[in-house]
Each structure stands twice: as C-alpha cells, then as structure tokens.
C-alpha cells in the first residue's frame, strides 16, 4: 500500500505531463461539446450570441422540417451507396494484395494509393471525369450508345456520382484495413480446410470471411461514421444540389451556420447527427457482434 503523499506527488507529476493535452481537449473538445448542446437550446443572433431560450423547440422544428428530413434521407442513401460498395470493391483487391509474390509491395501501394489523395483533389478530378461534354465517362458510355448524362446536374444521378467519387477516395483505406485482416489469418487454418477437402469457394466463405470478420466489422462501422461526416466532395461537386439531392447533413449544418447564420439551429442539427452516429455504432455492434468471431 502506498502512502497518500506519494500518490498525490505522482498525481502532480503526471498532471505536468498531461497538461498540454488536457488544455487543448478542454478548450477544443469538451467546452465546445457543452457549448454546442447549449447553443442548440437557444435562438441565436447572427453573430452567434444566445438570444432566446427555446428548449427542445429547434429539435422539434427540425424533425418536422421537410428540408432536414430530406438531409437525413440523403445521408442514409449516401451511406447505402458507398459503404457496401466500398467493401465489395475493396475485398478482391485486398485478397490479391495478400498473395505472396515478388513485388507485392508495389501492388499494395497502388491499391491503397488513394489514401494519399485529399478529398478536394479527388472531387475535382471526378468533376472532370464526370463533365457532361468533355468528360471521359460520357465518352465511354457514348461508345455503347448511351446518351449523355448530366451526372452532377441531374437530380437522379447527382448522389450516385458523389458516392462514386467517395468510394474511389476511400478505396485505399478499405484495402489497407481488409489486407491487415487477411494477413492475420493463420496459414494453418486455410491449409487444414484444404486438406479436409474444401474447395476455394468453401475456404473463402467458411474460413477466410469468418476469420476477417473483425476487420469487416471495424470497416463497416468506421466507413459509416466517416461517410455521415462527408462534406468536401459535396461542397465542391454539387453544393447540396440539384434541388437538395445531395444535401447531406453536414452540408446542411454548414449552410445553416455559415450562410444563414442560424448557429443555434445548426447546433441542434449537429447534436442530432452526433446521436445518429452513436445509435448507428451501437446498432452495428449488436447486429454484427453476433456473427463476428474474435480469435
């Protein structure tokens, strides 16, 4: 048992090392978290000062507001378009990158390359690929006699187009996570299944997939949370349009706070997004935990 004096001295010593981080967290994470909750309960002046206490009024208003409900729907669809596609496209690349051949590092680097590309650069490159007149996508479709599509101006296609940009940008991250999962699968496990007469498909479905289920699980959660926070690609490609078709939640928070100067309302939106992220994470945990096998 240590004496209280020594414990206090250790505490003082530790705080000296923790202080720099604690100050930054206090000012830029914990205080704003509380402040945002407070803002969400007030109507604010255009400068962001608290004006009138409205309690849950802005939350109630948001949940009845067709524009906000549209943002929720768009964000949900956006996640639906990007997360499964990202995993389905990333998995074969990760499987190939897991081969043991000479020069494999070059392939791994190539498949995970988009990690190095910023969302702003990715969005601009795709804006050019998707250009209705001189873009390469419409040209390729023209070769098989598909008429030109205004990818970013057609309300039906804008969200899928922004989603495609996002899938490409996130592909590198997906490959890295899935490859790390695959590298953790012991050779003996696969070998044993083969000796028992399992074909390649059976090995994949009944050995590899269960073995990498923690990586798949982590990726599904991380990708969903990441996608719900998307902003850059929307701001660059569509500014939330056409007619709200790509108005994801974060973009709508940005517009409300920094164009309409309704900081209180935007803060309430941010709180709802926060809760949504927490709920989704919890949901994914309970649903996936059931079939995820940890070694």
């Amino acid at each position: 048992m240590r004496r209280g004096g020594a414990g206090l001295r250790d505490l003082a010593g530790a705080l000296a090392y923790l202080a720099p981080s604690l100050v930054v967290f206090a000012v830029f994470v914990f205080y704003p978290l509380v402040k945002n909750a407070q803002l969400s309960l007030y109507e604010t002046s255009p400068l962001g000062d608290l004006r009138v206490f409205v309690g849950a009024g802005q939350y109630a208003q948001l949940l009845r507001d067709p524009a906000f409900l549209n943002s929720l729907r768009v964000s949900f669809l956006f996640a639906l378009y990007t997360v499964p596609a990202g995993i389905v496209l990333g998995l074969p690349l990760a499987l190939l990158a897991n081969r043991r051949i000479r020069g494999i590092t070059a392939y791994r680097t190539a498949y995970s390359f988009t990690i190095a590309v910023s969302i702003a650069a990715a969005a601009l490159i795709w804006e050019w690929l998707l250009d209705p007149n001189v873009g390469v996508l419409n040209y390729l479709l023209g070769l098989v006699h598909v008429p030109k599509v205004g990818w970013l101006t057609d309300p039906r296609w804008a969200l899928p187009a922004v989603a495609a940009t996002t899938v490409w940008k996130d592909l590198g991250f997906n490959v890295v996570v899935l490859l790390a999962g695959l590298q953790g699968v012991p050779d003996e496990l696969v070998e044993a299944a083969r000796i028992d007469g399992a074909g390649p498909r059976a090995v994949f479905c009944h050995v590899v997939i269960p073995a990498i289920s923690p990586a798949l699980f982590f990726l599904a959660v991380a990708a969903t949370i990441g996608v719900l926070q998307s902003f850059g690609q929307v701001n660059i490609l569509t500014q939330g349009g056409p007619v709200g078709a790509t108005n994801v939640i974060v973009y709508s928070i940005y517009r409300n706070a920094f164009f309409n100067f309704r900081f209180g309302l935007a803060a309430a939106q941010a709180m709802l997004l926060f809760m949504l992220v927490l709920v989704l994470t919890g949901l994914q945990f309970t649903v996936f935990e059931r079939w995820v096998t940890y070694q």
Binding site: G48, Q229, I249, F274, V277, L278
Partner: peptide
C-alpha cells in the same frame, strides 16, 4: 472519449472561440 466526438459537434463553438 474525445475520439467519440465527431468534428461537426465542436465545429460551431470552435469557430466562435
């Protein structure tokens, strides 16, 4: 716990700060 706080929740207060 700071990892659980999405940037959007701190965005507006941090801007005001």
């Amino acid at each position: 716990s700071t990892l659980m706080v999405p940037a959007e929740v701190t965005l507006i207060p941090n801007y005001l700060t």
